[in-house]
């Protein structure tokens, strides 16, 4: 699966889509869903919650693992993808679009530049994979 060129990525394998009117969607990457395996449960914050960059915003669970999802940026949650609670498998099927997790009103768009772009992220995960083998 390809990594959208206009997204930004973190070392913890979250993505942030390009903001529109200061709002951006957040999700986890294809690499992350693959590492976790079949996702069975997602826990997300409520709309209105304020997220701090680097702090956990929720969890995703597979059958035998729990993984925290960290907020890539700071901001206030404006929308939550409620379809994930009934269909967590969407994260396996469509991690970069349909399985967005939350939409946030960014506190500040500037920190986005500090995150990886698609090219750097792909190089980063290639390195992680060689490290493991």
């Amino acid at each position: 699966m390809s990594y959208p060129k206009n997204y930004r990525y973190t070392a913890e394998h979250e993505w942030v889509a390009a903001p529109e009117n200061g709002r951006a969607r957040i999700g986890i990457t294809d690499y992350a869903q693959h590492a976790l395996g079949d996702i069975v449960f997602v826990e997300l914050p409520a709309a209105g919650a304020h997220l701090e960059a680097g702090q956990p915003l929720g969890t995703v669970e597979s059958v035998k693992a729990v993984s925290e999802v960290f907020a890539p940026v700071s901001g206030t949650v404006t929308a939550v993808n409620t379809s994930l609670s009934a269909h967590p498998e969407l994260i396996n099927q469509d991690p970069h679009a349909g399985a967005w997790m939350v939409e946030v009103q960014l506190d500040d768009a500037a920190p986005l530049d500090k995150l990886m772009d698609a090219t750097r992220y792909e190089a980063f995960i290639a390195e992680e994979q060689t490290g493991k083998a």
């Binding site: 449960f41 669970e61 597979s62 059958v63 035998k64 693992a65 729990v66």
Partner: peptide
Amino acid sequence: LATREQHIRREK
């Protein structure tokens, strides 16, 4: 629902 349990979530 084993993810509630100690062998996965440890101190949490």
